[in-house]
């Protein structure tokens, strides 16, 4: 028997999952179900939508209404689901390439609308499914199969992008900082509006190997040693923040939600 959580929320007959040994995606996927469990949401009113890539295989393992769409389009499909049936809690699972390269336009517009969708970006800094090409979050000068001499593109800061585009709840955690990740996802789902949680994953197979980052364990240790919670960062000197990255809740500023605003139009017209 699997654990009670896994038994409850996973399609256990589809396990074990296809991800490589040590891939952080399984940790993040479990964290999502833990957040759903804590919130006690109505099980049959949850719809999980994904695009294409390693991360987007997650919904296939999760026992909800699940929608595995085309590359980059998860948020656009999810927008249709949510608009047509606002009673559904819609969660998007996407990757760094899926969400910010091919799906970048859909991402910023969903942020702008503040439609009630919680998007969790599994960021492994690489295109894993196709074998290790550099992505919009591959750090500058790191290598990918399509950046054999080092990547000269500047990486996206996904939470900053989402916050600037209008998302009303934004946070970042890592596969290592799993408890924080669960609480951010919980708060993201609770936020009535567009929430984005960047979950830094680890890809030991492609990104790790190409860039000599060691094993999955080494990569998680790196996350542990280099992450600074935003609440602690304000008390730290710039020198001590050198080479670190921030995690935690970056934005929590509720605004009117899109489908509720549309419902107001319907209600007003139906009164006329």
């Amino acid at each position: 028997m699997p654990s009670a959580l896994v038994n409850e929320y996973f399609r256990t007959n589809k396990l074990p999952q296809i991800w490589c040994p040590g891939c952080g995606h399984g940790i993040i996927t479990r964290a999502i179900t833990a957040a759903i469990d804590k919130l006690g949401l109505e099980r049959d009113k949850i719809c999980i939508v994904s695009g294409i890539g390693c991360s987007s295989r997650a919904p296939g393992y999760m026992d909800f209404d699940t929608l595995h769409t085309t590359h980059g389009r998860a948020i656009a499909f999810a927008t249709g689901v949510k608009m047509a049936n606002p009673d559904l809690k819609v969660i998007v699972i996407t990757g760094d390439g899926d969400a910010t390269a091919i799906g970048g336009n859909h991402l910023i517009h969903a942020c702008r609308r503040n439609i009630d969708i919680t998007t969790i970006v599994f960021n492994n800094n690489i295109y894993g499914m196709t074998g290790g090409q550099y992505s919009p979050t591959t750090p500058k000068f790191d290598k990918g199969t399509t950046a054999p001499y080092g990547n000269i593109d500047k990486a996206f800061d996904i939470p900053a992008l989402a916050a600037a585009a209008g998302a009303t709840y934004v946070g970042r955690s890592t596969a290592y900082h799993t408890q924080l990740l669960i609480s951010l996802i919980e708060n993201g789902i609770k936020n009535e509006g567009f929430s984005l949680i960047e979950a830094l994953s680890v890809c030991p197979t492609y990104y790790g190997r190409k860039n000599k980052k060691g094993s999955a364990v080494d990569m998680l240790e790196w996350q542990k040693d280099h992450a600074v919670n935003i609440s602690a960062a304000s008390k730290m000197t710039p020198e001590s923040l050198e080479g670190k990255f921030l995690i935690g809740e970056f934005k929590n500023s509720p605004e009117p939600e899109y489908t509720s605003e549309y419902q107001k139009i319907i209600d007003r017209l139906c009164k006329e």
Binding site: A76, F77, V81
Partner: peptide, 25 residues
Amino acid sequence: GGKFIQMEDEIASMAAVIGASLTGS
């Protein structure tokens, strides 16, 4: 009681239509 949305592009419009249809609309 229906819903209209102007999406960011044609690809997204088609995607949203499929998502909505899956809820029965």
